[in-house]
Computed example of a mutant assay.
Amino acid sequence: MSLGICLSLFLLVCGLSSSLAQSNNTCETYSQTNCQQCLSNVSCLWCIQSSSCLTYPYQTILPPSSLCPLNDARWGQCGINFQTLIITLSVLAAVIIIGFFICLFYYCKCENCGNSLQERKMQRKAEKRSTEQEHRRTEMMARHDEIREKYGLSKAGNAYARFDNP
């Protein structure tokens, strides 16, 4: 039922119903019938207030209230009026748009949070590695200094001076 309405609305918006309106059976010939027979032609609009079948004004997308009030206008299905259809479609579109933006903002925020968190973790690890490396370097230099003192090699003097004087 709703698939038929959506398909009919799509045909209407695309302007394909204009070619149907030029067929031999005009909508006004269905005025003496009922809603179902009138709406069998996609280009027709049934007005409950006047019990008439009218050619849908596809140039304006929505029928003007002078032609037929939205509460009384039927198109595609006899059980659904334009006012209900417009409200339903607008609420559905708003929910989809809001959902899209919520997902978009959530994804962007989580991606930024994840990157900054990862960057901070990487910086902390790099700092830890550099401090450990510096600590090892100072320990190694201290051991080298001890070895130099043990064998009488001073850091300030010539390292080979001892070997020159036997």
Score class of each variant (00 low, 15 high):
Met1Leu: 09
Ser2Tyr: 12
Leu3Gln: 13
Gly4Met: 09
Cys6Lys: 08
Ser8Asn: 14
Leu9Gly: 13
Leu11Arg: 12
Leu12Asn: 10
Cys14Gln: 11
Ser17Gly: 13
Gln22Trp: 03
Gln22Leu: 14
Ser23Thr: 12
Thr29His: 07
Ser31His: 03
Ser31Ala: 04
Gln32Arg: 05
Thr33Pro: 00
Thr33Asp: 14
Cys35Asn: 01
Cys35Gln: 10
Gln37Lys: 04
Gln37Thr: 07
Cys38Gly: 03
Cys38Asp: 10
Cys38Arg: 02
Leu39Met: 08
Ser40Cys: 03
Asn41Cys: 05
Asn41Trp: 01
Val42Thr: 02
Ser43Met: 01
Cys44His: 04
Cys44Met: 03
Leu45Ile: 02
Cys47Ala: 06
Ile48Asp: 14
Gln49Met: 05
Gln49Phe: 00
Ser50His: 06
Ser52Phe: 02
Cys53Lys: 02
Cys53Val: 08
Cys53Gln: 04
Cys53Tyr: 04
Leu54Tyr: 04
Pro57Gln: 10
Tyr58Phe: 13
Tyr58Leu: 12
Tyr58Lys: 08
Thr60Gln: 12
Ile61His: 09
Ile61Gln: 07
Leu62His: 01
Pro63Met: 01
Pro64Lys: 00
Ser65Thr: 13
Ser66Trp: 02
Pro69Tyr: 01
Pro69Leu: 07
Ala73Met: 03
Ala73Thr: 08
Arg74Tyr: 09
Gln77Cys: 07
Gly79Pro: 04
Phe82Arg: 07
Gln83Val: 01
Thr84Asn: 13
Thr88Val: 04
Thr88Pro: 04
Leu89Thr: 02
Leu92Ser: 15
Ala93Lys: 11
Ala93Trp: 06
Ile96Lys: 08
Ile96Gln: 12
Ile97Arg: 03
Gly99Asp: 10
Phe100Asp: 12
Ile102Asn: 06
Leu104Tyr: 08
Phe105His: 04
Tyr106Asn: 14
Cys108Ser: 13
Lys109Ser: 11
Lys109Gly: 03
Glu111Ala: 01
Asn115Lys: 06
Asn115Arg: 11
Ser116Ala: 06
Ser116Gln: 14
Glu119Thr: 03
Glu119Arg: 05
Met122Ala: 13
Arg124Lys: 13
Arg124Phe: 08
Ala126Asn: 15
Ala126His: 11
Glu127Tyr: 00
Arg129Cys: 10
Thr131Cys: 02
Thr131Pro: 01
Glu132Pro: 00
Glu132Leu: 11
Glu134Lys: 08
Glu134Trp: 00
His135Ser: 15
His135Ile: 01
Arg136Ala: 15
Arg136Asp: 15
Glu139Tyr: 05
Met141Asn: 11
Arg143Val: 06
Arg143Ile: 13
Arg143Asn: 11
His144Lys: 13
His144Arg: 14
His144Pro: 00
Asp145Lys: 04
Glu146Leu: 10
Ile147Cys: 09
Tyr151Leu: 10
Gly152His: 04
Lys155Gln: 15
Lys155Ala: 12
Gly157Leu: 11
Gly157Gln: 10
Asn158Pro: 00
Ala159Thr: 05
Ala159Phe: 07
Tyr160Cys: 11
Arg162Tyr: 05
Arg162Asp: 15
Phe163Ala: 13
Phe163Pro: 02
Asp164Cys: 03
Asp164Thr: 02
Asn165Glu: 13
Pro166Ala: 12
